[in-house]
Design a protein around this nucleic acid. Structure first.
Lengths: 188, 188
DNA sequence: TTAATATTAGCACCAGGTACTAAAATAAAC
DNA sequence: GTTTATTTTAGTACCTGGTGCTAATATTAA
């Protein structure tokens, strides 16, 4: 696989790459891969500050244990900073590159939509469903790193139907607005 | 924590639960938790077919290694089944309960939005950014299990600006429509 | 040719086990 | 109450994938 006549530096950068790609290999397997002794690999790891296999596996496991849970589609997108149930609410979404398109660094529109939708739902109650939207405008793209501030206001209630306006601004500039129509399910 | 006078059966079901909850504990820690010797715990694991700590961690790591990658916010939501670059495209999204609100079983609106958005982008090119939407209508909720079929059509091009209509239907009924305004970045 | 650097070897030790044998404690059956 | 069966402990040898250390070779540069 990998060549034999490889300089230390070369092997180091190569090792870093491979280990990021597949952290599940033992030192022995790496030593075969690079055609060096197991001690050399261990010395390399020591110099590069790469932990041993078990630690690496544990890190992957722990990272993802949390990540999956927190990433697993939050019920509310953004942080709820103010809420008057049935009236209004404010949420803040700190965007980063995980929410953006790689190529353009523009935050995917559905995250903005999700912030608005979940805020609209939170303002009424958790047990409502979105049945329609209207007058949505998305005028300016949001870039990774921008702080999106969403304000929601209930403008009308008709039976178990609710009409909620949501505005989202970044640096005082409106980037999104929309009217959400919600129905509550458990009419108690 | 756990009581001392616990029957074998009790301890077994208890162990199964705890280990599912937190697979990162050693036999020693479990033995303290249940106030039994470490050998008892090992016998228990043997009887219950529970692998050792390292195996458990490895399983979590491997599971999530895949999961996170596939879950990590796909660049395109739904499956692209037809595409005429610059003209039109069709994508299908098989929804399930992971995309829905727990309480209402209604698919979160932003997933529908994401399907539309990513299809609109795919129809033009990957290197475009959404800068606006208009005339969005979302008339009927989509339920977990529904198959959402999105059709996109480029209706106008002006310089590096593109206007794309997207319709999404479930069982021949329109659930979503919207006009997406995109700009391409690298005007080659 | 000598000095510096890189590589390999070998050993003791560690965590967290497996696999096995055997003794002691507890519960159930008679 | 005694015997039998079950459950719980104890202890040993061995395993993997290492760390941490010392020391001997190779290789490269001065």
């Amino acid at each position: 696989m990998s060549k034999k006549g490889m300089s230390k530096k070369n092997r180091h950068s190569n090792l870093l790459e491979r280990i990021k790609l597949d952290p599940f290999l033992t030192d022995e397997e790496f030593s075969e891969l690079f055609q060096v002794s197991i001690q050399t690999i261990r010395l390399d790891r020591l110099e590069l500050g790469i932990p041993e296999l078990r630690e690496r596996i544990k890190n992957v496991a722990e990272n993802n244990h949390h990540k999956v849970k927190s990433l697993h589609d939050k019920e509310i997108v953004g942080e709820l900073v103010d809420l008057e149930l049935g009236k209004s609410g404010i949420s803040i979404l700190d965007t980063d590159d995980t929410l953006a398109f790689e190529k353009t660094n523009v935050v995917k529109g559905h995250h903005i939509f999700a912030q608005a939708e979940s805020l609209a739902i939170a303002v009424i109650d958790a047990s409502v469903a979105l049945i329609g939207v209207a007058n949505i405008k998305y005028k300016n793209p949001v870039f990774a790193g921008d702080k999106a501030i969403a304000k929601a206001e209930v403008i009308r209630t008709r039976g178990n139907k609710y009409f909620v306006w949501v505005f989202i601004k970044v640096r005082q500039v409106e980037v999104f607005r929309g009217k959400f129509i919600l129905v509550s399910f458990n009419e108690r």
